[in-house]
Design a protein around this nucleic acid. Structure first.
Lengths: 172, 172
DNA sequence: TGACAAAGTTCCAAAAAGGAACTATCGTCA
DNA sequence: TGACGATAGTTCCTTTTTGGAACTTTGTCA
């Protein structure tokens, strides 16, 4: 399958990956969330080659994930700022940070900690159910076809009734 | 920067990306969460070339994200099942699904819907603060150095005091 | 005038992915 | 017995994507 064809797949994960499923995209966005805004600073921090960085920034701007804002003229200089659509990728990055903190810790503890301004405490991000607020367990989630799933694409569905995710896992 | 060197970066997102930051890894895992377990079925569903699939599965097994379980002998056949470490990547995938549902909807609505078995309702995944339970807004999170951040790596930190994430965003 | 900075662009070599065919083991069926 | 199918890979070659370094452009500052 061709790579950029992913955005036509009837799967929201595949569509998201058509933007961020490569070596550098999410690291560029991580830096955006850390208030990095300028080409040179992305390049210095990430060590990515310049033409890859230019390409990723261009694609993000085209996708309205970043906007290019002039911060001076003569010569014209721009910086890259997250849009609302870009800010909405925050849970993806926090989920990765959490996983890395848990499983890729080198023994020294997490490199960064996060403090929640409203409650004032250090926290970890937890993925919760929008309806009941409980933390999500993959074994407690039932996947169902949605309105955007055409008949042909039903191959993407899991078997019914849904089997256990693993030996000993919960079954309906 | 060399790609696999990412796992040595003092950043949990970079370390996580050293496993899942490529074209196919997260799609393989998506299928694992949909109860796909066998080589042929991954290959058929994803359209990925066979040697890439073999390589990704091998790497996941080596990383203890999947385990290889025999389901018959003569000839020996194995299937791939998520470990706890692999199951812990669920929030990453759900965050991507949510973003795709929101921003990559082709007008037909989401391809899949999720029902939370404990409360019985369709839900969307929401990233929340572990301490107060409120949904996270990137503009309300303060990033601080953690114990795993050596002095040299402090370059990864954002400027202090932390500037606004975007024009009009909240500032401390 | 010459050095410097920011933001790219260009060129070539190296690595990774795509595509198709090939291999190996065993069971089944004629 | 021998062909065929299923499963799970492996091999070979081509195309695409990255890595690395140098080069360009526009304007400031000493």
């Amino acid at each position: 399958m061709k790579w950029r064809a992913l955005d036509a797949e009837p799967c929201s994960i595949a569509r998201t990956l058509s933007f961020v499923g490569d070596r550098w995209s999410l690291l560029v966005l991580r830096d955006c969330f850390l208030r990095v805004r300028r080409f040179e600073e992305f390049q210095r921090r990430l060590g990515v080659t310049r033409h890859i960085l230019a390409d990723r920034l261009k694609r993000f701007v085209e996708a309205d994930i970043l906007t290019r804002v002039a911060y001076q003229s003569k010569p014209e200089r721009h910086e890259y700022v997250l849009t609302e659509k870009g800010l909405a990728l925050y849970p993806v990055l926090m989920a990765m940070a959490r996983w890395g903190d848990t499983y890729m810790d080198d023994g020294a503890g997490p490199p960064l900690r996060y403090r929640h301004r409203p409650c004032g405490r250090h926290f970890t991000p937890v993925m919760c159910c929008s309806e009941c607020g409980e933390p999500l367990d993959p074994r407690s989630v039932i996947v169902e076809p949605g309105p955007g799933l055409d008949a042909d694409a039903a191959r993407l569905l899991p078997p019914t009734p849904q089997s256990a995710l693993r030996k000993g896992g919960a079954v309906s």
